[in-house]
Design a protein around this nucleic acid. Structure first.
Lengths: 200, 200
DNA sequence: AATTTAATTGACCGGTCGGCCAGTTAATGG
DNA sequence: CCATTAACTGGCCGACCGGTCAATTAAATT
C-alpha cells in the first residue's frame, strides 16, 4: 500500500489537476494533449485511457471545479442565519474574498461564458435562489426596499464582484482607480444606501 | 475603376472583417489561417502578405475594434453636456444599449481580459476619466454623495452592464431573473438611490 | 509600349495535432 | 501459481497547423 507503483485514482487526480491548471490558464483550444501529458507526467495514451478524449476531459474539469465552487459557497452560506441587511453585506464581502483568493474560478467562468456553456449556470442556481429568498424576507420585514427584484440584487452583486477581478488588467489603466478593498467598500456603500428604505 | 479585379484596400477590409467575426466567435487559438482564408475568400498566402502573421492579424483586429468602440462612446458622451444626476442615468442607459446592440464588443473584451492584454484598458481610459470628472462635479454641487470614489462609480456601472451580457447564458438559468430592461431599471434604481444624498 | 510594382496564387515545408492500437507490466483474486 | 483485469507505454496514423517561396497576373508608372 505504501510504495505502490500503480494508483489509478492518484494518476487520474494528477491528470485532472494539471488539466484544470492549464485549461484555466490558456483555454481549451490552446492546450494540447501532449502538453497535458507532460504536465501531469504520464503518457498521452493514458489520458485517453482515463478520460476518453480532450472534450470529455474539459467537461470533467469544469464539472468538478463547479462542484467544488458550489460546495464552498454552500458552506459559506450555511453558517449565516439571520436575514437582515447585515447578512447581505457579509455575503458580498465573503463572495468578494472568495473570488480574490480563487482567481481560477473567475477565469473558468469566463471561458465557459465565451463558449455559451449553460451547465455552469445550474451549479449556483440553488445558491442564488436561496440568496434571493433571504433578500425577499428582509424586504417583507421592511428592512430592504421592496421595489427591486431580489434575484437582480444577487445578480448585481455577483456582476460587480466577478467583473472587477475579470477585468483587472483593464481597470488598472484607469486613473483614480483604487485597491480591491476600496472598490469593495464603495460598492457596499452604494448598494446598501440604495437598498435601505428612506425615511424622508 | 468600376470593374476592378484587384483592390488591395477592399481585400484587406474583407480579411479584417472575417477575422474579427471568427476571432470574436471562437477565440484566437481556435481559428486557423485556412479557415480565415476560406471565410474571406482569399488564399492563406494573401493574408500573410497583408498582415504578416496570425498574431499581427489578431492585434490589428483588436486595435481597430477598440478604436471603433472608443469613437462611438466618445460620440455618445459628447452630446451630453450637463453634469447632474440625470446625466449619470442616461449614460448608464446608453452604455447598456450599446452593449446589447454590440455583443461582439463584450466578447472581444472578454477574450482580451483572459489573455491579460492591457492595451484594451487604454482604449477607454480617457472616457472613464471624463465620466469620473463629471461625477466629481456633481458631487461638488451636492447632487451626488461625496464619500465614494468617482472612478469606482464608473467602474461599478461598467461592471454591472458588461457582466450582465457576458454571463447571460449563466444567469438565464437562475429563477426569478428578469429581462434586460427589468435588470437595467433595478440597477439604476439601486445605483441612483445609493448615490443620492439623504435628507434624514 | 515597356518596365516596375504589388496583389495574388498554389505548391510545399517541417512540425504538431488528437486519436488509435497492439503490446507490456503490475495488481487482483480464484 | 496462474489467469484475468486494468493501468500504462511507445509507436504510428492521417489531418491539419502556421509559414515560406517562386511564379503568375494585373495595375501603375514611365
Amino acid at each position: 500500500m505504501e510504495t505502490q507503483t500503480r494508483d489509478a485514482d492518484a494518476t487520474r487526480a494528477r491528470i485532472l489537476d494539471a488539466a484544470t491548471r492549464l485549461f484555466i490558464e490558456h483555454g481549451f483550444a490552446a492546450v494540447s494533449m501532449r502538453r497535458l501529458a507532460e504536465a501531469s507526467d504520464v503518457t498521452k495514451s493514458l489520458i485517453h485511457h482515463h478520460f476518453g478524449n480532450k472534450e470529455q476531459l474539459w467537461e470533467e474539469v469544469k464539472e468538478t471545479a463547479f462542484q467544488t465552487y458550489a460546495r464552498k459557497q454552500q458552506e459559506m452560506l450555511e453558517t449565516a442565519e439571520q436575514s437582515d441587511a447585515e447578512l447581505l453585506v457579509s455575503s458580498v464581502r465573503a463572495y468578494f474574498s472568495f473570488l480574490r483568493e480563487n482567481p481560477g474560478v473567475v477565469r473558468l467562468f469566463a471561458w465557459t461564458h465565451l463558449e455559451e456553456d449553460q451547465t455552469c449556470g445550474r451549479s449556483d442556481r440553488d445558491l442564488v435562489a436561496l440568496g434571493a429568498r433571504r433578500i425577499r424576507e428582509a424586504q417583507e420585514q421592511g428592512l430592504l426596499r421592496a421595489d427591486v427584484n431580489p434575484t437582480h440584487v444577487v445578480t448585481l452583486f455577483v456582476n460587480a464582484c466577478t467583473h472587477w477581478f475579470e477585468a483587472r488588467s483593464h481597470h488598472s489603466e484607469w486613473e483614480g482607480i483604487g485597491t480591491d478593498d476600496e472598490y469593495l467598500e464603495d460598492f457596499i456603500r452604494i448598494l446598501m444606501e440604495g437598498l435601505t428604505p428612506r425615511k424622508d
